[in-house]
């Protein structure tokens, strides 16, 4: 299996792409989870679907970069709608997220089926954005993912200190004179970038797992933000590469869902067995004194 990874060109490309996706969504997902925006990722990835199809309809191109930009723009508009609904109506965050998620996705579906009903075959393959098909990643896809992902990580590194304080204590950040609103927009934009990178490999439906699960896993092992963010990226990459290798090893194993199972397994193991926060140790701590008293 490992030798395949080293010598099989296609597998190597796909694994590299999934790995990049895992790192970027893991790192930016950590901030999303800490800022209580776990489900915003879910809403934005569903909302990206109409953007992908519209980008294709307008440009007639299936270039990954074009479709990623379409996805990012639509995801952004979805996020803006969520924020506008929360701030101007009595509907709370959950309702706004569910509403935008499902109606944008529905719109994407209408566009997709409409395009598919047209006689020309140029649209073939757009539906892979629903569940993702990592196996279809080509070298130029991976290059686009690396470029967008690298840029997103670089921006985060530049504004690390400010993003950290914004996530921990926004009031204090504002009292220091930081442009809190702009920074918040920046972090959300980076998250949108991470999502648009991952859609081709895991699809709009399962993308949210790659935002939430690596961060949840990483949080259990450390109490340091820096360590958590790095670990989250590592977990994301491990799950991305691992999922590709595993699904390549057996027949009829769809890559996207396998990647999700891998990252969820990492999260569950971390929740149960991480050194200090592990629920298993916690359970022992709670139950042992009782047992002693009984003896």
């Amino acid at each position: 299996m490992l030798s395949n990874l080293l010598f099989d060109y296609t597998l190597r490309t796909v694994a590299l792409g999934s790995g990049i996706m895992g790192v970027v969504s893991g790192v930016l997902g950590a901030f999303a989870v800490l800022r209580r925006q776990s489900l915003l990722g879910d809403a934005m990835s569903h909302a990206a679907l109409p953007g992908i199809v519209l980008a294709f309809i307008i440009t007639g191109s299936k270039e990954p970069l074009v479709l990623m930009i379409g996805a990012a723009v639509a995801g952004w508009i979805g996020a803006l709608f969520v924020m506008a609904i929360i701030s101007t109506t009595r509907i709370k965050q959950d309702g706004a997220l569910g509403l935008i998620l499902a109606t944008f996705f529905g719109f994407g579906l209408v566009l997709l089926t409409w395009v598919q009903a047209r006689p020309d075959a140029a649209q073939a393959g757009l539906d892979r954005y629903l569940f993702g098909q990592a196996a279809t990643l080509l070298e130029r896809d991976v290059a686009a993912m690396a470029a967008i992902g690298g840029a997103a990580l670089l921006v985060l590194a530049l504004f690390w200190k400010e993003c950290a304080i914004l996530s921990f204590d926004p009031d204090f950040a504002r009292s220091m004179g930081l442009p809190v609103h702009l920074l918040s927009v920046l972090l959300t934009s980076l998250l949108v970038a991470a999502i648009s990178i991952g859609l081709q490999a895991v699809g709009v439906v399962l993308m949210s797992a790659l935002i939430v699960a690596p961060a949840v896993a990483a949080r259990q092992w450390t109490d340091r933000l820096g360590v958590m963010v790095v670990l989250s990226g590592v977990f994301g990459a491990v799950a991305g590469v691992g999922g590709v290798v595993l699904s390549g090893a057996a027949a009829r194993l769809p890559t996207g869902p396998v990647i999700v199972v891998c990252i969820s397994a990492l999260a569950l193991i971390s929740l149960l067995f991480a050194p200090r926060r592990g629920l298993v140790w916690n359970w022992f701590r709670v139950n042992r004194p009782v047992a002693r008293q009984g003896a």
């Binding site: 776990s38 489900l39 439906v205 399962l206 699960a213 396998v258 199972v261 999260a267």
Partner: peptide, 27 residues
């Protein structure tokens, strides 16, 4: 369990269960 907030818990559980179902169907 206080290890995960509610929104993250939702985002963790349903993609996993759904993925397992999709894998089973594919198999």
């Amino acid at each position: 369990s206080n290890r995960v907030r509610e929104d993250a818990a939702i985002g963790l559980v349903f993609p996993l269960l759904f993925s397992i179902a999709v894998i089973l169907i594919a198999q």
